[in-house]
């Protein structure tokens, strides 16, 4: 039986009828038509589906859609300030070559945002610890770590997340 669930996604309140056995990831991608959040493994191993739910980064493939009732969800689609105005973190990923095929990138950007909110001055090892659950098959991580550290540096210079 479907249930009516309302949640705030990227600042917009939406109401959807969803069955209880549908994950938040599938709800966002199908019912919500937000396909920026990726499905890599669907079992919590890769982090491609990372979204920020009520302030905490989670694997949306391991959350039931109906659990998001009343929740605030942030996805990659809500990060840029406007057309051609990338988010600070997106900008740094471009500058540093932190994205290649780009499949892991939305998840890593959301994880980075969550990290920098909590710790605007991370060390390299803190960055690596934070993104340990985000698998990238292309970059070898070095450029991702550079991008995250560069975003942190700009934050400390007064730019905002």
């Amino acid at each position: 039986m479907k249930r009516l669930v309302s949640m705030t996604v990227n600042g917009e309140e939406i109401e959807l009828a969803i069955p209880p056995y549908r994950t938040l990831l599938d709800v966002l991608r199908n019912e919500g038509r937000l396909t920026g959040t990726k499905k890599g493994c669907d079992v919590g191993d890769c982090g491609a589906c990372t979204v920020i739910m009520d302030g905490s980064p989670v694997n949306s493939c391991l959350v039931l859609g109906i659990e998001a009732e009343g929740a605030t969800i942030e996805t990659i689609e809500g990060q840029h300030a406007g057309p051609d105005l990338p988010h600070l973190i997106q900008e740094k990923f471009m500058d540093h070559g932190g994205a290649q095929c780009g499949f892991c990138t939305p998840g890593i950007i959301m994880m980075t945002k969550a990290l920098l909110k909590e710790n605007p001055n991370p060390t390299e090892s803190e960055v690596r610890f934070a993104i340990a659950g985000n698998i990238c098959r292309c970059t070898g991580y070095a450029k991702i770590v550079d991008a995250v550290l560069a975003a942190a540096e700009d934050l400390r210079k007064g730019r905002t997340l």
Binding site: G44, G47, T50, S56, P57, V58, N59, L62, V63, M111, A114, A130, A132, G133, N134
Partner: peptide, 9 residues
């Protein structure tokens, strides 16, 4: 245990 995303749940 797992990742931060997993540990948040």
């Amino acid at each position: 245990l797992g990742s931060i995303q997993v540990r948040n749940r």
